[in-house]
């Protein structure tokens, strides 16, 4: 059962959700998501470090049309 909006418990949950959304949409949590996926898909391989991952990501991200007029 959820409490009506505005009550502290629910508000904190909503704010947490909003914060998670902001982190995901901005790519702030990209490394954490990478680690999660990596552990699932290649549990036997060593994951990239935070810095390596970010470098690899940036080169990939700017390869196509990403901004319009």
């Amino acid at each position: 059962m959820s409490t009506p909006l505005g009550l502290p418990g629910n508000l904190r949950e909503d704010l947490q959700k909003l914060w998670d959304f902001v982190r995901e949409v901005s790519g702030d949590d990209a490394y954490e998501r990478y680690l999660k996926r990596h552990a699932k898909v290649h549990p036997d391989l060593e994951p990239m470090t935070r810095q390596e991952f970010f470098k690899a990501e940036q080169d990939r991200k700017w390869d196509g049309v990403t901004r319009c007029c």
Partner: peptide, 14 residues
């Protein structure tokens, strides 16, 4: 900052 000092900390850097 985002490359070397605090890699990938997008929100913080922004």
């Amino acid at each position: 900052y985002m490359r070397g000092i605090r890699p990938g900390r997008v929100l913080e850097g922004s």
